[in-house]
Design a protein around this nucleic acid. Sequence first.
DNA 1: ATTCCACTTTACGTTAACGTAAGATACTTT
DNA 2: AAAGTATCTTACGTTAACGTAAAGTGGAAT
Lengths: 139, 139
Amino acid sequence: MQAQMNQITTFSIGELAREFDITTRSIRFYEDQGLLAPARHGQTRLYTNRDKVRLKLILRGKRLGFSLAETKRLFDLYDADSSSESQLHKILELIDEKKVSLKQQLEDIKVLLVELSNLEDRCRDELLQVTANTTTVQE
Amino acid sequence: MQAQMNQITTFSIGELAREFDITTRSIRFYEDQGLLAPARHGQTRLYTNRDKVRLKLILRGKRLGFSLAETKRLFDLYDADSSSESQLHKILELIDEKKVSLKQQLEDIKVLLVELSNLEDRCRDELLQVTANTTTVQE
DNA sequence: ATTCCACTTTACGTTAACGTAAGATACTTT
DNA sequence: AAAGTATCTTACGTTAACGTAAAGTGGAAT
């Protein structure tokens, strides 16, 4: 029986890049902007599972149109253990802002999805007409 | 009784800018990119209601993280009266792509809203503790 | 007539989020 | 030992979506 192996699985920058289908440049850039802070083995970066989660959150943020700065603010906000009363109020304010704009987005998306479905229907109709014409003409 | 007044209400660029809370620069830029095509009275641009709707759509697109180019594609797509079979298939494909990514966004948002609400609760708890401490200490 | 205001065009400047290339280091494989 | 592969730092380049300033035009008000 071995002593504690301290087996914390880590990932290289290349592995992460492949997994999330982004470039290593991007990952280093996120670090540069203060969104990631991987450990080092010599020069080489070592990413833990926590880093991986962060990266996932960064990309989700991007899909939602968040700037990296915004995502960083949310991270910082999340990391702040405990704060002063005024700080807490500012945090709550920011959370509320985000929630409001996210709800707006939600509405926007629902509307657009309906419109796209309508457009889709119209396209299918037209497609049927076109193919019908083609086949009748063709013979 | 007057003859037909041809009363098509139009808007100046300034009016639109105020109404949508954007700059005239932006509006001209959208035109430059082919997203708007207002009529002219001499040099001056005259925007119809249709233009207004377009502008609204552009801004909604922006809120959803669409690039102007993407929005333009959707416009062009919408305007295309009738097309060849292959064109229609391409359109349907594009629509489907958009729908997929919008549904992804919808999921992302729902998850984030929950997380933000949790964070909000934690903040409120902490806020209660802080204020409780303050009041007891203060006397 | 001149002042004012909204509008116009032209054009250079700016920011975010990387792309891309150059050159160095380190470990592995042949 | 040499070549290959992955990593590193540094740094200039690029694109989208405007910002901003300059200089001119046209109608309305004083």
